[in-house]
Design a protein around this nucleic acid. Structure first.
Lengths: 211, 211
DNA sequence: TTTTTTCTACTGGTTTTCCAGTATATTGAT
DNA sequence: ATCAATATACTGGAAAACCAGTAGAAAAAA
């Protein structure tokens, strides 16, 4: 393990944030801010000819969305570690960013310690997510299966089987009940979940991780 | 930040692994192995009356599955950090464990450094996943959208609309094509994706994140 | 215990999907 | 320019899903 400082690049369209980050990181010998950019295009252009260890990437750039930036950056430089940065915290965006390959995610109120810790971890190939971000992610997971409790046990079971692509008759056989009963459950499910066909029903089931 | 050693508990049904872990950790003053267990029941009983910082949890216990253990442990002690341990690496299990709340996951060939690093990070409330585990997770994500490229652009579009719960006629109107054409696309989709009804089709679409 | 909810089951009718085969115009690639 | 892939469209028939209303038995809650 070498002890050269970790080369980072800051990408954020707010000069204030850039300066803030630079100040926070200036005291630490383990990290060097190589340069900074205020938009996605310039960043990508730079990365075509330069290497860097870790990128601090604001998710709200004027030209390219944060989610797209992640894919584009990783296409250019697969080994760069990306840490998402944002002031607010939308679970869906964070989720997407992670799916696309960010290794870390921080809110902008992160302390210098957190920042350095995140950079170090991400540089080593590990994940780092601030505690607030973790809480948000945890909430969005539990939320997913929240309005399902409206359903009875039997209904959930039937929904699961429907979502598995089984026909009414198959389900009936499997549960030792009449196909007509299964139909009734199906109808009640559709009513409760406020949809009008099996398609939407399955969509919900899969989304809520019932299957 | 206090400097009391992190209290950990090892849960593994292989005495050899337990001894190995103890040896690896014995040199490090930051970590103390409080005790160990060879099954889930004893571990849970212990946790009812004792606190602990981090648990190293083998996923293949004789009595309770690793996935269930995670939920049970967190129900008892929400603040304990759990690090999953296994020799092999099944993406689906790792995914489930993470969903249930493990903060870290290591393969059993992890080095002492990795081990201590994982324990420290997890204790601080952060995630830690060994590089092999990350690779596995990344693969399972990319795999998701792999066999979709078989589909043509139009087919993907139609699939998306089907998955949104729209009927053939609605889709036809939306795309300014004949309902019969939509039917054909639907059939081709089912053939290509090797399923026999719209339900399974949607399931796949949602799972592969097409929508 | 009584009431409510859940699970079960039916009738009867409409709409949609599913299956199999065929066919032509338009793109895209070599 | 030609060949392959794609998108388009049809016929006709079988199966399944969808809609609306009803209702008894079992289980859970009051």
């Amino acid at each position: 393990m070498q002890h050269n400082p970790i080369q980072i690049v800051i990408v954020d369209d707010h000069p204030m944030v850039i300066e803030g980050l630079k100040t926070l990181l200036s005291d630490d010998v383990r990290v060097t801010v190589k340069t900074h950019f205020i938009n996605g295009t310039d960043t990508l252009a730079f990365l075509k000819n330069n290497t860097v260890d870790v990128i601090l990437l604001d998710v709200n750039l004027p030209d390219i969305s944060g989610v797209d930036m992640v894919t584009k950056i990783l296409n250019l430089r697969a080994n760069v570690g990306i840490i998402g940065l944002s002031t607010y915290s939308e679970p869906s965006i964070i989720n997407q960013m992670i799916k696309n390959g960010v290794k870390g995610y921080l809110l902008k109120n992160a302390t210098a310690d957190e920042l350095v810790n995140a950079i170090t971890q991400v540089h080593q190939g590990n994940f780092y997510f601030g505690s607030e971000v973790q809480k948000i992610l945890a909430d969005s997971v539990t939320q997913e299966s929240r309005d399902l409790p409206k359903l009875t046990r039997r209904e959930k079971h039937v929904l699961k089987l429907i979502a598995e692509g089984k026909t009414t008759n198959t389900i009936a056989e499997e549960l030792f009940i009449s196909p007509l009963t299964v139909e009734t459950h199906r109808r009640n499910l559709m009513q409760k979940l406020e949809v009008s066909n099996a398609a939407s029903l399955i969509k919900i089931a899969v989304e809520k991780k019932l299957i």
